[in-house]
Design a protein around this nucleic acid. Sequence first.
DNA 1: GGTTGCCTTGACGTCGGCGGCAAGGTCTAG
DNA 2: CTAGACCTTGCCGCCGACGTCAAGGCAACC
Lengths: 130, 130
Amino acid sequence: MRIGELARRAGTSTRTLRYYETHGLVRPGRSANGYRVYDEAELRVVHEIRSLLAIGFGLDDIRPFVACLRAGHDSGDVCPDSVAVLRRKLAEVDDYLDRLGTVRRRLHDQLARAITHREETCLRTRGPAG
Amino acid sequence: MRIGELARRAGTSTRTLRYYETHGLVRPGRSANGYRVYDEAELRVVHEIRSLLAIGFGLDDIRPFVACLRAGHDSGDVCPDSVAVLRRKLAEVDDYLDRLGTVRRRLHDQLARAITHREETCLRTRGPAG
DNA sequence: GGTTGCCTTGACGTCGGCGGCAAGGTCTAG
DNA sequence: CTAGACCTTGCCGCCGACGTCAAGGCAACC
């Protein structure tokens, strides 16, 4: 399979696949004329990359998962390095959830106060002026 | 007050203040020699900018708040445009909280399954091999 | 042999909020 | 007079995951 077909089947672009390659995540062979040649397993690898990217992983975080797949495991999650990354990411997400919750509260309060203030202003305005 | 003093008092850099100016958020006068001159009110404006940036607003989102302060209100929140931005941002944060919660669940499950799988693998490995 | 379609490498553009540096003007204290 | 502290404009760099050309090679079909 060449790069165009893999891109179509993985739902991404050829540019993206080359980008992954420069970052050591995808490893195609080469045909006689220099074209990249991918086997079926690479499709699985690309799917793994895409789904991890989609939940906020960076390419560096993803490397262990790909290595785990390449090591023959049927899932990229099961190797120690992958588990370590999963733990770290879970902690990061928890932390971010905390901070985002705080932000939400501040936004909510700010909005409430702004609206209250506007109503008071309206009353004051209507009083003397109306 | 010149740019250096404002930067110190606002806890930021001169570069940052010039950046805000290019984006229409801060408006200094000029002294005879070309130096920027800020009045006390600009310190308040910069604080408003900083606190809104800190909770995830972009400079474009912040503009209405600054305009509100400049319009003479004692808070940047109370003008209709500011309230609209607050509502939109609250909705965005809620949306992001949802998605991040989903990610958290997926991470949690993935971690749980990975660890379970590893234990099973350990048992299988210990069985025939040990 | 010409067109079409796929492939190659290389290099610059994107978004946002600045950091940092260069080259020079200005003011003040000693 | 000079050092140094401040100011000016302008421009490149950064991060990350790519998009978007550009210029050219390769393969297949008519």
